[in-house]
Computed example of a mutant assay.
Amino acid sequence: MRKGLTVSAALALIVLPAHGERVSSPTLDRGIAATLEMPEGEGQFPAVLMFHGLGSSRDEVGLIFADSAKALAANGIASLRIDFRGFGKSDGDTGAFTLERQNEDAAIALQALAAMDQIDAGHIGVMGFSFGAGAAIELAAARPDAIKSLVVWAPVGNYHDDMLDSMGQRAFDLAAQDGVVGLDLGWRTMALKQGFFDSLNGHDLLAALLAYDGPFMTVNGSDDPYRKYTPALMEAAASADKQALVIEGGDHVFHVYTPSRSMAGQVIDATVERFKATLGEAR
């Protein structure tokens, strides 16, 4: 992907799967790698955008996003999941990641998805996992005309406080001192520059939910520390149709690495049913 390529030009490079092929890997503007998964059949389909968490990628931990896309497609709903720039196979420097860039990537993905001939642009939902839930919330707030349903898994509720809890004050201090800090997330290491830390205070997720009055659902494991954000998120959500689902015994990633992965199935099933109820059917 050439630098400076516009979204409209990038769309021209997207080749939809041939008849019988329902999974493709388009590259969007700014070198954003994506996976498009379509249902069987013809017509315009409702669709869901999927945003991964910090340090992860579009298939997500334990392939839970990849499995979700298959389940959505089996129920007549298309999906587009992306790697935010700097992660997975997308272009960009991981260290230069900021919330502004994350939100820009989310907006590019929405524009690309809505422009596809086989997508019903009037019936698009968005979902996000953990840190990526913030991107989903802010996209819904910025484009309530375009986002018809919002589902978040184990969502962040306050960017600054969450990063402070998980990284510690020393990470903030080192970034301020050196301009960059190396982090060990447990499953990968990464470096983040001061711009990331500066961006944390400029995004109020509770205020964003106040600006979105479409259907909203949040899903947490009962043992997920991020569950502490649920009361504030539910109070802030402007929608009259809002739900908080708790998966009993689940942790932050719904135990996707256990042999049975049964909790992942519960989360996926509930999410698919929610989007079926709020997005409608193909036309």
Rank of each mutant, 00 (worst) to 15 (best):
G76M: 05
Y159L: 08
E42W: 03
G186P: 02
V23N: 05
P231F: 06
L200G: 04
A96P: 09
D161A: 11
S24C: 14
L206V: 14
M163Q: 07
A264N: 15
A10T: 09
A133E: 07
Y159S: 03
K242Q: 10
K70I: 11
F51R: 09
V253M: 08
V253S: 12
G134I: 05
K193L: 10
M1L: 13
A112E: 03
P231H: 01
Q44Y: 07
P259T: 08
A73L: 05
Q169T: 13
L205H: 02
I82Q: 04
L16M: 12
P231R: 07
Q111L: 05
I32K: 00
V253E: 06
Q118S: 10
D120Q: 09
P215E: 03
D269L: 03
K3H: 13
S262W: 14
N220P: 04
H123G: 03
T35E: 07
D91Q: 11
P144D: 09
A9Q: 12
R101H: 08
A34V: 00
D91G: 04
F172A: 09
D161H: 11
A142C: 12
S90Q: 00
F84I: 06
I137D: 02
T258C: 04
S24I: 08
V15Y: 00
D29P: 09
D145G: 12
R101M: 12
H252I: 13
D105R: 07
L210S: 12
L209N: 00
D198V: 06
A141D: 02
L192D: 00
P155K: 00
P155H: 03
N201A: 14
D173F: 03
G53C: 09
N158K: 03
L49M: 07
F172E: 02
Y226K: 11
S239K: 03
S262V: 15
S222V: 08
D223F: 01
G168H: 05
S222I: 10
L63G: 09
A114D: 04
M234I: 14
Y257N: 14
A71C: 07
A232S: 15
G92F: 02
T6Q: 02
T278H: 01
M127P: 11
L80R: 01
T6H: 00
G186H: 03
L54S: 03
V219D: 00
A10I: 07
D178Q: 14
V181N: 08
M167F: 15
V23H: 07
V181C: 10
P225Q: 06
A171Y: 01
S90Y: 02
P17N: 05
K193N: 13
G134C: 00
G132W: 10
A96W: 01
